[in-house]
Design a binder for these strands. Structure first.
Length: 287
DNA sequence: AAAGCGTGGAG
DNA sequence: TCTCCAAGCTT
């Protein structure tokens, strides 16, 4: 086992050395890495690139962002999705200024304490921004390890304790190259060991992959995704998009008319206000 | 701890 | 067209 993993680490990091995407946050600051990690939560790289560049140009450090109202962050978030991430990133910047002297903390627990930073993001920043050894367990890594060691097409629906233990073992066994291993195995999942069409012919560890050896048995079909049409989520998205495109605010009545079910629109608007994504200013709604 | 939370591109 | 899913977090 131990030797197998050592060999796999060497193979994957070797593959990574010649297959590294030139992503801008990879030659940025810890702040740039933190911003990228927030934006990349459930959002593809291709959609993040331009927004990230704009953010880093406008707010090159946490203090610059913290100096502006959170509405500026929501506006600049554009259509990345999950706009509460913009609020949390703004709150994180504020906390970094208030509690960490304006510098993104290197300490893993301090990172975990920031708004919007969970197990993955804390490990990713510690690893990618500072080179420290933490198990970076994102959807890519989970899929790679599930195939490589469990022989299953997909990992369980949610990260399990067993997965965390296993990821930590890999990190430990990577030793001084833990951060390199983290980036490499994640990149392998993103580029080769993909969810839909894995390219096993290009995989540096296909020969030792349990799922490959078993002949690519299909995994359990996953539960159907939540229906979208008519959901509160969709309604929130429609309403927020109207507000976002109304720099001077939009009349409440006019805003609610953007959704045919008025009761649902009222509920959704209440939620947006409660979340702090929009503000009620008399009869006007604005960011 | 299960559910809620956006968006757009690929297959 | 429609389903899947993309560097998760919070309550």
């Amino acid at each position: 086992m131990h030797a197998d993993r050592q060999a796999a680490i060497a193979s994957v990091t070797g593959w990574f050395a010649v297959n590294t995407r030139d992503l801008p946050w990879r030659h940025s600051t810890p702040w740039g890495v933190l911003v990228s990690e927030f934006m990349l939560q459930q959002t593809p790289v291709s959609r993040v690139l331009d927004v990230w560049a704009y953010w880093l140009g406008r707010w090159p450090n946490p203090a610059a962002l913290a100096a502006e109202p959170s509405s500026a962050a929501v506006a600049a978030w554009g259509r990345l999705g999950y706009p509460r991430r913009a609020l949390r990133l703004h709150a994180a910047a504020t906390a970094i200024v208030g509690e960490h002297g304006g510098e993104v903390p290197r300490d893993h627990d301090a990172l975990l304490g920031l708004p919007g930073v969970g197990a993955y993001t804390a490990a990713a920043v510690a690893s990618f921004a500072f080179g420290d050894a933490y198990p970076v367990l994102d959807t890519n890594v989970r899929r790679v390890l599930a195939r490589l060691e469990s022989g299953t097409q997909f990992p369980p629906p949610h990260p399990s304790a067993a997965e965390r233990v296993r990821a930590t073992e890999w990190t430990t066994q990577a030793g001084p190259r833990a951060a390199l291993w983290a980036a490499a195995v994640m990149e392998l999942g993103a580029l080769v060991c993909t969810s839909r069409r894995p390219d096993c012919g290009a995989c540096p560890v296909a020969e030792s992959c349990a799922w490959h050896a078993a002949g690519h048995p299909p995994g359990r079909t996953r539960p159907r995704a939540q229906a979208w049409a008519g959901t509160n989520r969709q309604c929130r998205g429609v309403l927020l998009d109207v507000v976002r495109r109304s720099p001077d605010g939009v009349d409440v009545t006019h805003l609610l008319a953007a959704w045919d079910d008025r009761d649902q629109a009222v509920t959704a608007l209440d939620g947006l206000v409660a979340d702090g994504l929009v503000a009620l200013d008399g009869h006007l709604v604005r960011l």
